[in-house]
């Protein structure tokens, strides 16, 4: 109940600011379009060679691609690819990174040293190269892209959670739980973790935008989700080849990608401001 109230007040806090409010609105539209795509009278796979590379018309509002497929339909279905990748990547990164950070920060010592060196190694590798190497091993598929993007997000979660644990580890309420016989697991997951959610939430939003960008970059480089699955990055890659004949081709996926990333970033910054401001945290009803 507290969490729900916290979420509602956080959203209310975001809606009070014009930038995050517009971003939230835009993302809601994108999520709804992606979720309800199958209900809409559009088909992203239907080929019509008579219409190939035709400009915007009543039949194809944003034109047709090189196979005569509707660009608008592919952008809407492409949103699904981006959002699923973002959600999956965040889930993978959180599922691995959060426990890593908790263990490293809570126990310290050799566990901290080993886990953080692993994180250092992962951070030393450029995310795009790391993702491409993973795709080379697992093959080109949406699952592989999701895993690759997710694993590149692990260090971020591990670092942030560890830093939060180090801050909270010696606080009275944590020590008190220990004094009353609380186990390490209980302390980590029931005492420290709930008090770290605000930072984790910001990281979730930031990683979502990074994941969408990385997925698009992989698709642009030709190693993302395989065709004919619609993907904004893949559309940009193909649209690049038709810049002279069909300059509108890459415009819509480019705008969708830019606005989505911008929206996630704006919301992330808004969240950080709200949650870092004690007055706003109190107003949001979150844990202190």
């Amino acid at each position: 109940m507290n969490s729900l109230r916290f979420m509602l007040r956080t959203i209310r806090g975001l809606m009070a600011r014009p930038g995050p409010a517009l971003s939230l609105l835009y993302l809601t539209v994108v999520v709804l379009a992606a979720a309800l795509a199958e209900v809409l009278p559009i088909d992203p796979f239907s080929q019509d060679f008579v219409m190939m590379l035709e400009g915007p018309s009543a039949a194809h509002w944003f034109g047709a691609d090189e196979l005569g497929r509707d660009i608008l339909a592919r952008v809407i279905y492409g949103a699904r690819t981006s959002l699923v990748t973002a959600a999956g990547a965040v889930a993978i990164a959180g599922a691995i990174g959060i426990p890593m950070g908790l263990v490293a920060g809570f126990f310290g010592g050799w566990r901290d040293a080993v886990l953080m060196r692993i994180v250092d190694v992962m951070m030393a590798l450029p995310a795009i190269l790391f993702a491409m190497a993973l795709i080379a091993v697992f093959g080109r598929s949406q699952g592989a892209a999701l895993l690759a993007v997710g694993l590149t997000g692990v260090p971020g979660f591990a670092r942030i959670v560890r830093a939060q644990v180090l801050t909270l580890r010696r606080r009275d309420f944590v020590v008190a739980v220990e004094a009353f016989g609380g186990t390490s697991g209980y302390n980590m997951f029931r005492t420290i973790l709930p008090n770290s959610w605000s930072q984790i939430l910001v990281q979730v939003v930031v990683l979502s935008s990074v994941a969408i960008l990385l997925e698009a970059a992989l698709a642009f480089l030709g190693v993302g989700v395989p065709p004919p699955t619609p993907s904004w990055g893949e559309m940009l890659r193909t649209g690049k080849s038709y810049l002279y004949e069909a300059p509108y081709y890459a415009v819509l996926p480019g705008i969708a990608l830019t606005l989505t990333i911008l929206s996630f970033d704006t919301i992330g910054r808004g969240l950080a401001r709200i949650l870092e401001n004690p007055r706003d945290v109190a107003a949001a009803g979150g844990p202190t």
């Binding site: 080109r140 030709g222 395989p226 065709p227 004919p228 080849s241």
Partner: peptide
């Protein structure tokens, strides 16, 4: 690019004939 595009053309034709296949892009 040409191979990727024409493979999708064939994929579409096969689907019309009831053959539903995936592309293995390497």
């Amino acid at each position: 690019e040409a191979s990727t595009a024409i493979s999708q053309v064939v994929q579409g034709s096969l689907k019309d004939a009831g053959i539903d296949i995936e592309l293995d892009v390497r």
